[in-house]
Amino acid sequence: MIQTKKEIRPAETGASKTVNYRRRESIKDFMCVVPALVFLIIFVYYPIVHLFKISFTDWNLIRDSYKYVGLKNYKWLFKGSGFDVWLASLKVTLRYTIAEIVITIVGGLLLALLFNHTSKAFNFMRPIVFMPKYIAVATSGVVFIWILHKDYGVLNQALKSLGLKPLPWLVSEKTALKGVLMLTAWRVMGYSMMLYISAMNSISVDYYEAADLDGANGFKKFWYITLPLLSPMTIFILVTTFIASMKVFQSIDVMTGGGPYNATNVMVFWIYSLAFEEFRVDRAAVVSIIFFLILLACTALTLKISEKSVNYDA
């Protein structure tokens, strides 16, 4: 009987068996990723779509009801009183981001060059430099508030002892962002140092031996061998630091609260203030969406550029 059935299905050749097998495998594969996909949909994509919806309402998060207001919130951001604050906040965020990228890459690279030795002393010192990354920002922020205090702070005492004028680090709009960046530098440089050291160790010694034979000095070896072969790592640090620093919040919240006079009012802190201090979740949603699009565009652009200019030999 079974034999007969097989005989009346001439289409089921070896090729169609392969197709069926592949289809079954595809479904199986897909089912394996379904749990992760469901998780992503619930906790990532759904909130994004929901955020988009909120941006067209007048919801304040605590009210049960809301009504759709069309493009009112977008008009507030681009044509109303929100624009100046948004522009100022974007400028502050970009200034912070550029500074953090420079600190992370330049500082990390210099530290990596300094600590890329295998002696016991360096093995001991490396984790010490790396450790700040794992100290909670809230804790280190409080310590830095004390260090940067205009009257009792250690930094100003040091400046005074050197005959320099003490500065009102966190209370002047000219110095507040620099104060926050000091904490950032202390936290991030050790991390990028470790990344650079691991990348340096993966560069083949053959290149350096060949350079030695050609009579290259230390600087030339660094400039023509180390630096280009570190470019994948540099791009990785650049992209991750860019995304992380554009979203800076905790250090600002702890150290300056966005002040003084909005001098450190970075985008995420502004979004937080709109939502939780002014109860304007509708406006916070609009700012979040525009900021999300900016981040997306910048990240895509960075990756595009990196494809063309990175040496992946390492």
């Binding site: 949909i41 994509y45 759904y46 779509v49 929901h50 919806k53 009210r63 049960d64 009801s65 809301y66 009504k67």
Partner: peptide
Amino acid sequence: ILCLAVFTGCGEKGKEDETGG
């Protein structure tokens, strides 16, 4: 499903509109 879930949510809130918190 995602879109439906979001806009079903809208509908429910809309209903609450009529009574108010």
